[in-house]
Write a protein that binds this DNA or RNA. Structure first.
Lengths: 241, 241
DNA sequence: TAAATAGTGTCTTTTAGACACTATCGC
DNA sequence: GCGATAGTGTCTAAAAGACACTATTTA
C-alpha cells in the first residue's frame, strides 16, 4: 500500500472527489415510435442543446433515490420503472467540472408520458431513430416533432443509444416490455410495443405462443372497449413466482 | 428549479459529495470451477472478512482507469478483460463514510490467475459456488480452498453474485467466454469454460455447431501438444467485423 | 350482413439435443 | 493394434415463421 493510499483510507475527505450525478433516459412510445424526454439547456456550456433530466446525488441519498427525486421534480411523475444503465465517467464529459453520472433507464406508459408532458411543460418528447435493425450497435439520431435532428449536450446521446440497446436486448427475456403498457393490455398492444422497440414486424401466432407459453400473462376475463370490431381479451402480468 | 438546485449548479463544491470507488470482481477458472480473487481485511470495520480488491477514483482519473490501476497495483496484472457491472450506492454499505462504488467484472485466463496469485501473494482464489442452475437469481457462497464458507465484507458478496449472473447471461451471445482462455484454444477447452460458468454439461455436437456457425472462430492450422491421444485443432477469435 | 380485427390450425423451416459412429494421434 | 479423445452424420424433438382459416364483435 502506498502512502497516498494509506492517507486516503485514513482521511478520504482530504482528497478531492468527483461530483456524482444521475441522468434519466425516460422512454415512452408515441405513434408506435420510441420517444425520449428532453429539455433544452438555456445556459453555457452547451446552451441550446438538449439534455436528459438529471441532478446531483445528495450525501444522504442513494443514487436510486436521486433518480426518483429527479423523476418527481423534473418530470412530474410519482413513479416509473427505473433501472440502472451505466455509469459514465469520462474526464471531459462535462467541461465545468469533474462529474461522474449514473444513467438510469426509465420506462413510461402512454399515460405516464402524457402526464410528464403536462406537468413539466418544458419537456419535449423527441423521437429516437435507431438506424440499425437487430441488436448491432450504431449511433441513434434524436428527432424533434418536426423531424429535424436535435443536438444533444454532453454524452447524453450515448446514454440514449445505450438505453435503446439495453431495451432491445432485454425485451424478450425480461419484463421490461410490460413497463410500457398499462396494467391491463391486449396481446396486440404487447406486440405493438415489441415491434416499436425492435423496429421490426413480428409474426403474430409465434408471438402469441411465446408470450402465453411463458406463463407470465394472466387473462382477466375482461375485454377492451371502444372498438368497432371484435374486442380483444385483456391480460395482466402475473407476479413473479 | 429550487434555490438549493440553483446553488448546487452554481457552486457544486459547496455541497458534500459521496466518495467514489471501484471494486473488482476478478474471476478465473480453477479445476473447472469459477474462482474469485479476495483479500482479507485486517482492520475495522469488517476485520477478518474478505473483500474484493478496490480503490478510490481519483479526481483526474476515469473509473475505468481506476479499475485498471487497482488491477495493476492490487492484483499485479498489466491487463485483463474489464467491464462495468453495476454501481452500488446504499447509504450504509460502508459504515465509515458514504462511498458509492462502481463494481467491475474482470476475467482472467489461467495464466493471468496464476500471475496474480504469484505477484500479489495476499490474494486468495476462492471458489464461487452458485447454487442455482440456469439464470435464476440466488445467493452464491464463496468457499475457501479448504471448502469452508468465507464471510464477505460490505456488499461484496452481492457484487460477486451479480458478476456470475451477468457472466452467465452474456456467455452465449457475447465474447466474454473467450476472455477466460488463452489466444489459442481448442473447442473442448471452450466448452469446458462454458460448462464451468453455466454449471451444467452441454451437448458436444450442438456446441461445436453453434460456435463454428457463428463465424467468430478461425482455425489456426495448429494442434494442441502434449496429449497422449489425438490432438485437437487450435482456434483463435476472429476480430469483430 | 358487412367490416374489421381477434384468435387458431397446421405446414414448413430452423435449431437444439441425443447418440452413435468414424478419424486420428501417441504409445 | 490399443486406448483415448477429436470430430461428424443423422435421427429426433422443440421452437419459430408463414399463411390461411375460423370466430366474434359493432355498426
Amino acid at each position: 500500500m502506498t502512502e497516498a493510499e494509506f492517507l486516503e483510507e485514513y482521511d478520504p475527505a482530504a482528497y478531492e472527489r468527483p461530483a456524482l450525478a444521475v441522468d434519466l433516459v425516460l422512454i415512452g412510445l408515441r405513434d408506435a415510435r420510441p420517444v425520449v424526454l428532453l429539455l433544452k439547456r438555456d445556459r453555457l456550456p452547451h446552451a441550446g442543446r438538449w439534455t436528459l433530466p438529471g441532478g446531483f446525488v445528495g450525501i444522504d441519498e442513494t443514487p436510486e433515490a436521486a433518480a426518483g427525486r429527479v423523476l418527481r421534480d423534473k418530470a412530474g411523475l410519482a413513479g416509473a420503472h427505473l433501472e440502472q444503465l451505466f455509469t459514465f465517467g469520462a474526464l471531459d464529459r462535462d467541461p465545468r467540472m469533474r462529474i461522474v453520472s449514473i444513467a438510469y433507464l426509465g420506462l413510461l406508459t402512454e399515460a405516464g408520458l402524457a402526464e410528464a408532458l403536462e406537468r413539466a411543460p418544458f419537456l419535449v418528447a423527441a423521437a429516437i431513430h435507431v438506424p440499425w435493425a437487430g441488436e448491432a450497435g450504431g449511433p441513434v439520431s434524436i428527432l424533434s416533432p418536426g423531424r429535424e435532428a436535435l443536438a444533444l449536450a454532453f454524452d447524453h446521446a450515448d446514454m440514449i443509444a445505450l438505453a435503446m440497446l439495453r431495451l432491445r436486448g432485454k425485451l424478450d427475456y425480461s419484463d421490461v416490455g410490460f413497463a410500457l403498457l398499462p396494467e391491463h393490455f391486449t396481446l396486440r398492444q404487447l406486440q405493438d410495443v415489441h415491434e416499436a422497440i425492435l423496429g421490426t414486424p413480428l409474426n403474430k401466432p409465434a408471438f402469441r405462443r411465446r408470450m402465453l407459453d411463458r406463463g407470465r400473462l394472466a387473462p382477466t376475463g375482461l375485454r377492451e372497449a371502444g372498438t368497432s370490431f371484435r374486442p380483444a381479451e385483456l391480460y395482466r402480468v402475473q407476479r413473479s413466482t
